[in-house]
Amino acid sequence: MSQELPQAHASLHQLRTTLQSVLFGQEQLIDLVLTGLLARGHLLLEGLPGLGKTELVKGLSKALGLEAKRIQFTPDLLPGDITGNPMLQETPQGRRFVFQPGPVFANLVLADEINRASPKTQSALLEAMQERRVTVMGESHALPEPFFVLATQNPIELEGTYPLPEAQLDRFLFKLEVRATTAETLEKIVLNREIGVEPVVPAVMNAESFAALLQLTRSIFMPQPVASFIARLVHATQPGEPHATGVKHGASPRAALALAAGAKAKAVLEGRPNASYEDVRAIAPAVLRHRLILDYGAKIEGLTPDLVVQRLIENIPAQDKPLPTTLAAAKV
């Protein structure tokens, strides 16, 4: 690991630089997307149209050298349009149904505006995400490795959207919010981009080297105190806990696993052999914000999942053993 980590760190740094040349002013978003991919998770990007979500995914597929496909979700999209359909074909043995794979059969699937499709179609994709295989007419078809879904959705307040159910949201490792860029970033975009001209993105690595990175991420050391911190953080989201005021449903154990995997990925991204409390704190909003369901009272008061997570991060210490009253903790 001592030799692999510097190499991985260097190649990931290169990948990060490449993506930053595609998407200006979204360094944090790029870091989280890379973290999510290294953690083998599916990502949900939420933001208004035109903020570069699709551009980021396309640039990522090119940089990673992975096969990427895009599905534009619309209300009339059918499950078969995603998973693929059996087609009646003339063969030497006679007429028979032959499975025609849909766009989901790719390493990187961009599910654009996923909340515009009907729940039935959404669930078809989400089942593929969970099982990593597609079953049509009783026949299972494995999806390629690696398989990532990067879904984008418009804010649910917009018209013509079907919000994803909580159980399906839970299958996304991260929910990332794509925020509007600053004026300086806009100026940079205006100077370096033209409408209709896609930026040239060089391939930084191939599928094998990316698979090696995924393997390296799994081998990152998770210290017991960090695991304890993750457990306490997730447990603190449960209703009734002191810092979970306004929470109707807390995070599931899958959230704890997501935090652990994300912390390891963040460690690889920074070239460290171990996960840390800082990694957990950095990815906690992305992991927990779509897993916390607030009650109506909290919503009326303006409380958001992000505020709850921020409160948890501030109040759950890495060391849960209290100090005597004669001492006080001091940040150095």
Binding site: P223, E270, R272, N274, A275, S276, Y277, E278, K331
Partner: peptide, 8 residues
């Protein structure tokens, strides 16, 4: 944690 040593 206090010295931000990233669990090293």
């Amino acid at each position: 944690d206090a010295w931000q040593l990233r669990s090293r």
